[in-house]
Design a protein around this nucleic acid. Structure first.
Length: 348
DNA sequence: AATAACGACAACCGCCATCAC
DNA sequence: AGTGATGGCGGTTGTCGTTAT
């Protein structure tokens, strides 16, 4: 088999005009670049056209899969937690091989990725069963996880339907530069492309999509009212939202005296931001979440934990940040919020 | 150091549903 | 109604890095 692969690879390399004979060939960085350029030009839904006009020797389906499974900017690539793997097993028992449905519980994960993980777990289990006569391990206790989203929101790219946000304190740094890349800021046309592609995928882009794109724009440290990066400038966020939506309320105005670290709006209804359930601020004001927000967070086992929380009187004062109870916090480097079923993490 | 085995996951295939014509 | 194009989905296999021998 390996010999066959080598021979066919050499044939393809020597005779570019010949159709690819290899059964599989990994995508190269160059191909990815070409594909992205073609998607920029032709959109992320006319895959046959994307493939044909790119000059790539790949089919439309292959291009689509590459984009969907590897290149989409919102993919989460970090390893799943043990809890998440357990949840996959649980969902598989419930739904069977409905991978896209199962994947809809894991924002940023694709059906293919979930399927691979499940297959790996199964193989591992089978191998273990072959070595061990029987396991005395008790069945896992049921996980108290949020219910699946309604069927109409289920899909392989479910994050589009789900609100999520993750915040990083401006005084701290993240080791994840996936979404903020000062060394290679997005050009306007990139931003336009990104938003266009999102809108092609989803006729009503979520605020999260727009914000997550916008946050990738170059940071301007000279224009921040807070004296820090533009990223943390509430005026910047307000103007950004107004600009993006070209209308609507001022969803962040209530935090005018705060430094917005990151914000994610829940959803858009008729072009208006109707909820902003997950907002991280540096503030000396009182607790900024409204009842609905707090309820949503409670339902999703997300706990607010202020850095200087006063356990005696329960007052939330300042410098707080959200994370789930099971997350780990390294104050010197990062705040981690593991992917929750309905609250995937955006790694700003 | 060389090789085999393993594990993860990327890539592809075939089938099917949907849509436009 | 028939047909072809397109894309979604689940199953399968190839590739490659890691670990064990």
């Amino acid at each position: 088999m390996e010999m066959q692969y080598l021979i066919q690879s050499n044939l393809s390399a020597a005779c570019p005009a010949l159709p690819a004979l290899r059964t599989k060939s990994p995508w190269t960085a160059e191909e990815d670049e070409i594909l992205m350029a073609s998607i920029t030009k032709h959109g992320a839904n006319k895959w046959d056209e994307v493939a044909r006009k790119s000059g790539l020797r790949r089919g439309g389906k292959s291009c689509r899969l590459r984009w969907k499974n590897q290149l989409h900017p919102r993919l989460k690539k970090d390893p799943l937690t043990v809890e998440e793997k357990d949840y996959i097993v649980q969902l598989h028992k419930q739904y069977g091989s409905k991978w896209s449905l199962i994947a809809s519980h894991f924002p940023g994960r694709t059906d293919n990725a979930i399927k691979n993980i499940r297959n790996s777990l199964t193989k591992r289990k089978q191998r273990a069963a072959g070595k061990i006569v029987h396991s005395a391990a008790p069945p896992s206790p049921p996980l108290h996880l949020p219910p699946p989203p309604p069927p109409e929101t289920c899909g392989a790219m479910a994050w589009r339907e789900l609100p999520s946000i993750q915040h990083m304190s401006p005084k701290r740094t993240t080791n994840n530069d996936k979404f903020i890349s000062p060394s290679s800021p997005l050009e306007d046309e990139d931003v336009e492309f990104w938003i266009n592609s999102l809108m092609q995928d989803d006729p009503v882009p979520s605020m999260e999509d727009l914000l997550s794109e916008a946050i990738r724009q170059p940071v301007d440290s000279t224009t921040s009212a807070a004296g820090g990066a533009q990223l943390y400038d509430v005026d910047y966020w307000n103007s950004l939202i107004r600009e993006l939506m070209d209308e609507g309320p001022e969803p962040l105005s209530q935090f005018a005296d705060s430094d917005i670290v990151a914000a994610g709006a829940h959803e858009m209804i008729s072009g208006e931001v109707v909820a902003s359930p997950f907002m991280a601020v540096l503030s000396d004001q009182s607790f900024p979440y409204d009842d609905m927000d707090y309820e949503v967070m409670q339902q999703n086992s997300i706990t607010n934990w202020p850095a200087d929380y006063d356990f005696d009187d329960g007052e939330l004062q300042q410098n707080f940040f959200p994370f789930s109870p099971s997350s780990t916090v390294d104050l010197d480097h990062r705040v981690e919020m593991p992917c929750d079923s309905l609250w995937g993490g955006l790694d700003f």
